[in-house]
């Protein structure tokens, strides 16, 4: 109880209160404490990545071991993980060997670029290949699926069921049309009207939501600082 509840709540209280006040204190100690805390956060994140990696590896290993449906995908996770790691490390090792044998400049050497002979990076190492020809297109593909999903979602749901919905529909069509270059060709005012809708009615609503969110954030922070909300410690 002491380790799992009292001490974490005490830490949350002290640190939370200090960093709430720190924002208003400009001394160098205050600034340094922020840097210090951020460094701690980075170190913790480093260790947490080990946990994350363990979770990923373990979950997929279980799937492969049990031969669950779709375990082939889990095998792919391993291939990707190990393959990228090997390619990344081999590039580093190669660079070190080149530097040791005098084939390459050490980039940390100031002279390397002061003599204007810094080579243009070539994107030919294995790791770069994976980045450029696997990660890049795969991510772009996922993102571009949005175009299809937006069209389908708009088609299924954007109906003028009520007067309010009809207003939204008209506004949406103006904004969508105003966001393409052809709109200016039809009428110069259309992009301006679209901008007006975005900057005024749309903004008013967003600000209202934002104020609510900010208040919610403040209340949540206070609940955590004062130990009222303890779900993040794993229940109450």
């Amino acid at each position: 109880m002491l380790l799992k509840r009292t001490i974490p709540v005490a830490i949350a209280f002290v640190v939370g209160l200090w960093f709430a006040i720190q924002y208003y204190v400009p001394t160098s100690f205050s600034e340094r404490s922020l840097t210090w805390a951020s460094n701690w956060a980075k170190i913790l994140l480093g260790f947490a990545y080990i946990l994350g990696l363990y979770s990923l590896v373990h979950v997929h290993w279980q799937k492969i071991r049990r031969g669950q449906p779709g375990y082939g995908y889990s095998l792919l996770v391993y291939v990707g993980l190990v393959g990228t790691l090997v390619l990344g490390l081999s590039g580093e090792v190669q660079t070190l060997v080149d530097i040791a044998t005098g084939k390459a400049h050490h980039f940390a050497d100031f002279q390397a670029y002061s003599t204007h002979d810094k080579p243009i990076p070539n994107f030919s190492s294995g790791f770069d290949w994976v980045y450029n020809y696997v990660f890049y297109p795969a991510s772009a593909t996922m993102f571009s699926i949005l175009a299809f999903f937006i069209a389908s979602a708009a088609y299924r749901t954007f109906r003028a069921r009520t007067i309010e919905a009809a207003f939204l529909l008209i506004a949406a069509i103006i904004v969508m049309f105003g966001r393409v270059p052809i709109a200016a060709a039809v009428h110069r005012a259309i992009p301006d009207v679209a901008d007006w809708i975005m900057a005024n009615p749309n903004m008013a609503v967003k600000r209202a939501i934002l104020i609510g969110i900010s208040l919610g954030t403040i209340a949540t922070s206070l609940r955590i600082i004062f130990g009222i909300e303890r779900a993040y410690l794993g229940g109450d």
């Binding site: 708009a154 109906r159 003028a160 069509i173 969508m176 049309f177 393409v180």
Partner: peptide, 12 residues
Amino acid sequence: HLLVIVLVLLCN
């Protein structure tokens, strides 16, 4: 964009 506008109009 134009296609989405057409689709929305069509569904309405």
